[in-house]
Design a binder for these strands. Structure first.
Lengths: 246, 246
DNA sequence: TAGTGGTCTAGACCACGCA
DNA sequence: GCGTGGTCTAGACCACTAA
């Protein structure tokens, strides 16, 4: 009877979303076709209207459907949302993978230093507080892809400053080692050219047009955690953004 | 008694959101301070839990609060969300205004032409279908800010192709004249340099590093509407993106 | 007028954090 | 064990669309 499925801890709204997607495929629904109404879905899926609406909201966020009050819910012409859009805070490792390449890392330098004025302000450091900067060249199928300069406050590192980090993803390392968990970032995109350091130390082409992703990462409480300047080779990784009308 | 406020057609959840913001200001709550629990807010605001949660969801979307299950709802350290982030589909007119400048337009050309292969594919045109391209230089306080090349299918224009459009915002014009209502866009960002046309016709500096925003705009049904290549002068308009962990 | 999605209420049980 | 936010149900009225 009203036995609750418990072993299955996936939210009902998620399950409902998947059922609806299966229904669309099964019925071979096409662009602009109308989905069953919310009350029909309630009956079909055996869940409340609230849950149906949550499932539809998820599909709407994925740009798979759209709603029109008084008319119904419809299938999008074509889902255009791209994976790996910049509005998603993926690690550079993930960005390289999404682009279809094998990520690699060449370590260039780890140094403890005094922050620049900009770092001091953005990371909200107190007077005299030091920072640690990690400089790496990230590769995609062994080609130079991103020149990464990441800076964190010295106080985030317990004990010695490491000489080298073995993990592929710096984010992963910071999270497991120091408990830094960025949930969002504010980024600025600036055109740039390869400089001497990148050419000589990183083996990048001279006079190559790059995209500088200058960002500050924050935790969910709004504290600045990481200050980074990543120079992307647009021949390897493309910057895409899904933009939405407010 | 249970008289319903009707003249006031603003959603209760919106009103609740505003009340909560007023409460924060009134009580002078600071970073990391705890907000009243959802049940307290129900009593304080005289609305259901669902409405309270909708109001809190709105505040969370604005990066003003964050929730922790089992603990409570807290004020963000500092609202770091930037206005005019690229993830918001603003018109270029708005982008210039947000940057603090007075937008202007220099018309360069409107031409009816055959589409490139790329346009044909992205706009899903049929064989032989023509397009109309609008070329403008957008200015910010009379300085060259954006070199805009916007292309739409010829069939979207009823009657003659105009020689010039007086409205400041092309989006505004397309919406009112032709009913084109983009709701979202997929953009790619590419570094570029000023070319001869921009220097000679647009009066932009030679060898200036630019950001090309290459985008396709879609309506809510998922139909491609506009194909555009906008070249931004980073000295005037900066590209910012709010990035969220998925 | 009937049917659709939008909003709101009242009430329930669960999972999590903490004393 | 208690209070918190997370999820779900049942039921109601409203606003909008189309016949």
């Amino acid at each position: 009877m009203g036995m609750r499925i418990k072993e299955n801890s996936i939210a009902l709204s998620i399950q409902a979303k998947q059922k609806i997607m299966e229904y669309i495929i099964e019925k071979a629904l096409d662009s602009q076709d109308k989905l069953p109404s919310e009350s029909r879905l309630m009956a079909m899926l055996g869940v409340s209207r609230h849950t149906v609406r949550e499932a539809l909201a998820l599909l709407e966020q994925d740009h798979l459907i759209y709603k029109v009050q008084g008319k119904g819910t419809f299938l999008q012409q074509k889902p255009v949302k791209i994976e790996g859009g910049l509005e998603n805070l993926d690690s550079i490792t993930d960005m390289i993978k999404i682009s279809g390449y094998e990520p690699g890392t060449t370590w260039l330098e780890i140094r403890e230093e005094m922050p620049t004025e900009d770092m001091k302000q953005k990371l909200r450091l107190v007077e005299g507080e030091k920072v640690v900067t990690f400089i790496r060249l990230r590769t995609a199928d062994h080609r130079p892809a991103v020149f990464c300069v990441d800076t964190i406050p010295r106080k985030c590192i317990n004990g010695e400053v490491p000489m080298k980090v073995d993990e592929e993803s710096m984010f992963q390392h910071w999270q497991t080692q120091y408990g830094l968990e960025p949930t969002h970032a504010v980024a600025e995109i600036i055109p740039a050219l390869t400089d001497d350091y990148m050419v000589n130390q990183g083996g990048m082409k001279p006079n190559l047009l790059l995209l500088l992703l200058y960002q500050i990462h924050y935790d969910r409480e709004g504290n600045p955690l990481i200050y980074s300047k990543d120079y992307f080779n647009p021949e390897v990784i493309r910057f895409k953004v899904n933009r939405l009308k407010r």
